[in-house]
């Protein structure tokens, strides 16, 4: 029986699709060079020439917000990639081995709970230069524990299942068992969490760029655009409104997608 996909799934994937399309489009076509300054057209409101208006240098906000989608997606994917792979490996290891290894790994992972993304970024930025890589690493490391916990829990419940025990009795190697039987069972909560973590990562990237700890200042990322717009809010609201709305739509997209996936994949949690 096929269930109708929940509304949140439809809305979420539409929004995320839009952002991805914007990023892809920005690679092949842009209405205006996003860095071209036009001092004859500063603070233009949205119009025919500049669809979403211009900023304090007369740069086209539409083009810049399209380019900004790249940073939002790139930083998000890399950061979540880091936390997902690191978290899953650690969680699987802890759950599968159990005992002292479990205790040790989870104790270490738990320490990361004490360092949310911004705090981690402060620490890393003090040591290395602030920048895109530092931001990605900080966001990635900070979100490791969620994945590790999820993975460990899945492995723990699946480990005792009959078909895994049967496989073990038949002499299947441990990595093979883990790969063939346990991991597929853990996949759906991980995918859901990845989507939710992407929402967090987009917010964190924007905050870090806003603080000057993220994407370099001359790259049009949404956080950078907001930091620059801060000085000119009295002259035109659009340079602040446009990237803010872009962030909201993207974050909303990922979190709706995550919720929708959860409802879709596991109807029992449906609320």
């Amino acid at each position: 029986m096929r269930r109708r996909p929940p509304l949140s799934l439809v809305m979420g994937s539409t929004l995320v699709g839009l952002v991805a399309a914007a990023a892809a489009l920005s690679l092949v076509w842009l209405p205006v060079d996003p860095n071209r300054m036009d001092f004859g057209a500063q603070f233009s409101p949205p119009g025919v020439e500049h669809w979403l208006g211009t900023d304090h240098f007369g740069r086209d906000l539409f083009s810049r917000v399209l380019v900004g989608a790249r940073s939002a997606l790139l930083v998000g994917f890399v950061a979540v990639g880091i936390s997902l792979s690191l978290g899953c490996v650690l969680g699987a290891l802890a759950g599968w081995r159990g005992g002292a290894a479990d205790e040790l790994i989870m104790r270490l992972v738990d320490v990361l709970y004490a360092f949310p993304a911004i705090l981690m970024a402060l620490l890393l930025a003090a040591v290395y230069q602030p920048g895109t890589v530092t931001a990605m690493a900080a966001i990635g490391l900070a979100t490791v524990p969620v994945f590790a916990r999820l993975m460990r829990a899945s492995v723990l419940t699946l480990r005792g299942r009959d078909y895994v025990e049967a496989g073990r009795a038949l002499g299947a190697s441990e990595p093979r068992l883990l790969w063939a039987h346990v991991l597929p069972g853990a996949a759906s909560p991980i995918v859901v969490q990845a989507s939710l973590s992407l929402a967090i990562a987009v917010l964190a990237e924007a905050a870090l760029s806003f603080l000057g700890l993220g994407t370099p200042p001359d790259v049009p990322s949404w956080g950078n655009m907001l930091r620059e717009a801060q000085g000119f809010m009295a002259l035109s609201p659009f340079p602040a409104l446009v990237p803010g709305l872009a962030i909201i739509l993207t974050v909303l997209g990922w979190s709706l997608l995550g919720d929708g996936l959860r409802d879709h994949l596991d109807p029992t949690t449906r609320r």
Binding site: N35, R36, M37, F57, P216, P217, D218
Partner: peptide, 17 residues
């Protein structure tokens, strides 16, 4: 920021920091 853009227009690659 403006100067970086003006320099880019004459073919200079500017790494802004």
């Amino acid at each position: 920021e403006v100067i970086a853009q003006q320099l880019r227009e004459v073919g200079i690659t500017v790494n802004l920091a």
